[in-house]
């Protein structure tokens, strides 16, 4: 019994079919509780008023935008090293989800920035690097859809993902050098005693869990779709030959 057994598409679909309902229900539950709790049952911030509640969408989306790329990086590495098709398809499935999270983080950030900083957009290091990350997602997806041969596409995009990761990190430090910004530093971390006041912290945790579950559910679902679409195409090709 090893994790590589799930590289078998049939096994993957069978297992994820069992997990998927639980994960999706969990995602919906967490998101609804977290957001309702956050929006209606927490006090307004002393200085920021009610705008602080965008936090419950902004922070989890931003976290998952980066984690989605990391997941794609791992999946690409698995494809390059062990050539499991499911892994390549999972990377492909994760890209639009990650891009959407990036967009959510950028948009909610703009809505939050408008009343707080007095501007929708500032060329702040964090904002800029998220924009660059979004461009990386776009390029990655465009390359996937431009190439007809599936294996070639998987190979090329996984190498692009590797090279892109290096350059994404590089850009992060470059923009940090370029402009010291408006955005506050990281206010959430695991090794601090108390990150933000507990009233804000617990609903935020629930929201983060919700976004993680949502990401897993979407990636499972989209990977299944990709597997089935590819299987349908193979069947049609076989029919044409017969």
């Amino acid at each position: 019994m090893s994790i590589w057994e799930y590289a078998n598409p049939v096994k993957f679909i069978r297992t994820t079919d069992k997990i998927l309902p639980w994960v999706s229900v969990g995602a919906v539950l967490c998101l609804v509780t977290g957001l309702v709790w956050g929006f209606f049952f927490t006090p307004d911030d002393f200085r920021q008023g009610s705008t602080v509640k965008i936090f419950y969408l902004h922070v989890p989306a931003a976290m998952m935008a980066i984690n989605a790329w990391v997941m794609m990086l791992v999946a690409s590495l698995v494809w390059i090293i062990r050539r499991h098709h499911v892994s390549a398809l999972a990377a492909r499935a994760a890209a639009p989800v990650g891009a959407t999270f990036t967009l959510i983080a950028l948009a909610t950030g703009a809505f939050w920035g408008q009343p707080m900083w007095g501007t929708w957009w500032a060329w702040d290091p964090r904002l800029t690097s998220f924009l660059v990350l979004f461009l990386f997602y776009l390029g990655y997806m465009a390359l996937w859809s431009a190439i007809e041969n599936d294996d070639t596409a998987a190979d090329l995009t996984s190498i692009l993902c590797l090279v892109g990761s290096v350059f994404a990190v590089l850009s992060r430090y470059a923009v940090l050098f370029w402009n010291q910004g408006l955005h506050q530093g990281a206010s959430l971390s695991l090794d601090k005693e108390e990150n933000v006041a507990d009233v804000f912290w617990y609903p935020a945790l629930v929201c983060i869990a919700g976004f993680i579950l949502l990401f897993i559910a979407l990636v499972f679902l989209r990977t299944q779709t990709e597997i089935r679409a590819r299987r349908a195409r193979a069947l049609m090709a076989r029919e044409r030959q017969a």
């Binding site: 660059v132 461009l135 990386f136 776009l138 390029g139 465009a142 390359l143 692009l160 090279v163 892109g164 350059f167 590089l170 850009s171 430090y173 470059a174 923009v175």
Partner: peptide
């Protein structure tokens, strides 16, 4: 589209 983000740094 692919190259321009890589040019950023």
């Amino acid at each position: 589209l692919l190259v321009l983000p890589l040019y950023v740094p």
